[in-house]
Design a binder for these strands. Structure first.
Lengths: 155, 155
DNA sequence: TTCAGTGCAAAACTTTTGCAGTGAG
DNA sequence: CTCACTGCAAAAGTTTTGCACTGAA
C-alpha cells in the first residue's frame, strides 16, 4: 500500500490532475515526511528544493489531493491543519499537546469494540477518527519513549 | 450534572475567576444554546443582550473556561472552533453519514484501552476525540435504531 | 485597594482568491 | 492550442495581544 514517488504521475492522471513540477516536489516531500507537517512547514521544505514555489500553490495542492483522497487533512487541536499521505494502513494518533509531536498507533481491540458499538446501533462503519491528546506522564517513562529520549539526547 | 445558570457564580469562584457581567452573559448564552456556536456567533448573540461586549472578551472567556474544563472546544472540520458547556458526562459520537444524525455513546472499555495505549507510550491523557462515521447496516436493524425509526416515521 | 477582567484597536496567524502569465496534455 | 496550474499580492477569516481603564473581591 506504500506510495512510491514513481506512482505520483499515475495518481495525478487517475484523478484528472496535471503533474506539474511544483506538485511533484510537494507530494514527494510529503511522502518523505515522517511527521505530519502543516502547509507552512511543507512550504519551507519544498522551497529548499525549488525556492519559487508559492505557499498558495502548496495550499492548492493539499486541498486538491485531500479531496481526491490521496492525502489526509487533520485538524489536531488549535493550530494549522496538518497533512499526511494515505500510504500506510489505517492508524490513529496520539498528539503530545506539549511538543506537538504526533505518534501513530493502531489498536485492533479498539477497532473491534467500535464495530460492536456500531452494530449495536444498527450501523456499519464507514470510517473513524480517534485522537488521544496527551502529555508526558509524571512518574514513569515507557521503554519506547525512554529509548527515544536516549537517542535524542545523544546527539 | 446539568449546569443551571445559578451555578455560574460557584463555577467561577471554584476556578479562581471573577464573575463579571460580560462573563455571566456569555456563559448563560452558551448554556441556552442547543447548537455548538463558534466565538463569532456567540458574540453575535451576547451583543443582542449587551451590545458593548467585545469579541475579544468572548474569546478570552472561552479560553479561560475551556482551560478549566467548564467548556469543551471542538475543531470540527475546517472552520472556527465551536464550543459547548460540559453539562453532561463525557461522550463520543457516531455520525450517520447518510442522514447526518449524531448519536452519543460511551464505552468504558475503549476508554480503558486508550489509557493503556497512552501509558505504554509514556503519556497521560489530556482529552480524546472519537468519531465513528457510519451508515445504516444492510441486513439487520438494532432494537435501538428500530425504535428511533418508528418514532421518526410516526410524525 | 488591588489586580483580574474589559473594550478597543491593531497585530498575528491561517487560508483563500484575483489576476495575468505559463506549460502540461 | 487550451485551460489547469502557477507565482505574487492582496484579501478574508480566525484568534491573540497591547494598553489604558474599570470594577469585583
Amino acid at each position: 500500500m506504500t506510495i512510491d514517488p514513481s506512482d505520483i504521475k499515475r495518481i495525478c492522471r487517475d484523478n484528472g490532475l496535471r503533474l506539474t513540477a511544483p506538485r511533484k516536489i510537494i507530494v514527494e516531500t510529503l511522502l518523505e515526511a515522517t511527521d505530519h507537517p502543516d502547509a507552512v512547514e511543507l512550504h519551507r521544505r519544498v522551497t529548499t528544493i525549488s525556492p519559487r514555489i508559492a505557499l498558495s500553490t502548496v495550499y492548492r495542492t493539499l486541498v486538491a489531493l485531500s479531496e481526491k483522497g490521496v492525502l489526509e487533512k487533520h485538524n489536531f487541536g488549535n493550530g494549522p491543519a496538518r497533512f499526511e499521505t494515505v500510504d500506510r494502513e489505517h492508524h490513529d494518533h496520539l498528539i503530545d499537546v506539549v511538543s506537538g509531536n504526533v505518534i501513530e498507533f493502531r489498536s485492533g481491540e479498539i477497532e473491534r469494540l467500535q464495530e460492536e458499538i456500531a452494530r449495536q446501533h444498527g450501523y456499519e462503519i464507514v470510517s473513524h477518527k480517534l485522537e488521544i491528546y496527551v502529555r508526558p506522564a509524571k512518574r514513569r517513562r515507557s521503554k519506547i519513549s525512554a529509548a527515544r529520549h536516549r537517542r535524542q539526547s545523544a546527539k
